[in-house]
Design a protein around this nucleic acid. Structure first.
Length: 269
DNA sequence: GCCAACGTTGGC
DNA sequence: GCCAACGTTGGC
């Protein structure tokens, strides 16, 4: 079984008149969704490698506090993304047709919301720490964990909306989302998502506020992403307010069980 | 095939 | 809203 990270935008954003927002809340409500809209070749190719049962980190991009906001799994392997054939659709691609589908999507099933959103800024902060001398609150990450985080495409390949995740990072992030507890060593700035080491000051913002559901998140989350084809998904924010957009495509009338958010990133401006 | 122009992503 | 990074397009 493999592990992946897929982006969506938790904040509303209109593309061709349609809102591409797809937040973790939307995902939870939908249950299962078709990941349409990826319009980047590398991201598409990664989706083609996915198998039923593979685990997915659900990421909120293009929002105030970009974060890993939940967990999901692949429930249907790659199949042609029909939204590329609909000229009225946000992810329409005139170069794709039914005879030779250019873009593909998978279906993903929501598993759970992250009790504590694991923000990009926190991961970036951890990547700056000396692996052998971690604050005790996150000592469990270990030096191997810090090194694994440093190698995540999320930190180095920002624009890729579908990414591979190592088993080690999957385990670590799941643990972090469950435990939280970094608010004393790391502070999320209110607005933007920059972080600062906490050490001496307390003036700043707080990390770890609770969101409406009682989760502790830093930042907000939502926006949606749309990615036309395989590449682009998008973002999210953390904490309570997220902005959210989604990226997945929402299928409008597909089966009852599938909602289809979109996830690609292709912004069709 | 190179590469400049252009467009998009997405953090900040 | 800005803009850096980076992917894509298309002329040559």
């Amino acid at each position: 079984m493999r592990h992946w990270l897929m982006k969506a935008e938790p904040d509303s954003r209109l593309v061709k008149g349609k809102d591409v927002k797809f937040s973790v809340d939307d995902f939870e409500a939908a249950g299962t969704t078709a990941w349409e809209g990826v319009r980047n070749f590398e991201a598409r190719n990664l989706m083609k490698e996915m198998s039923v049962g593979d685990k997915v980190l659900f990421y909120h991009s293009n929002c105030k506090n970009p974060s890993i906001a939940g967990f999901a799994e692949v429930c249907k392997g790659a199949y042609p993304d029909h939204t590329a054939w609909d000229s009225s659709h946000p992810y329409y691609d005139p170069k794709s047709d039914k005879e030779t589908p250019k873009w593909f999507m998978v279906d993903a099933r929501f598993i759970s919301r992250a009790s504590n959103f694991v923000s990009l800024s926190l991961l970036r902060y951890i990547a700056t720490l000396s692996p052998d001398n971690l604050p005790e609150e996150i000592a469990y990450i270990g030096s191997d964990g810090v090194n694994a985080i440093k190698e995540m495409p999320l930190l180095n390949r920002g624009r890729l909306s579908v990414q591979r995740v190592s088993q080690e990072c999957w385990d670590l992030i799941q643990q972090m989302a469950e435990r939280g507890g970094w608010e004393n060593i790391y502070i999320q700035k209110a607005g933007r998502g920059k972080q600062k080491a906490k050490s001496t000051e307390n003036t700043v913002t707080k990390a770890g506020e609770k969101d409406s559901r009682g989760d502790t998140n830093n930042g907000d989350m939502s926006r949606r992403n749309i990615d036309p084809e395989g590449a682009g998904l998008d973002h999210a924010e953390v904490s309570n307010g997220y902005k959210g957009r989604k990226r997945k495509g929402q299928l409008d009338g597909e089966t009852d069980s599938i909602v289809a958010p979109r996830r690609k990133s292709a912004r069709t401006k």
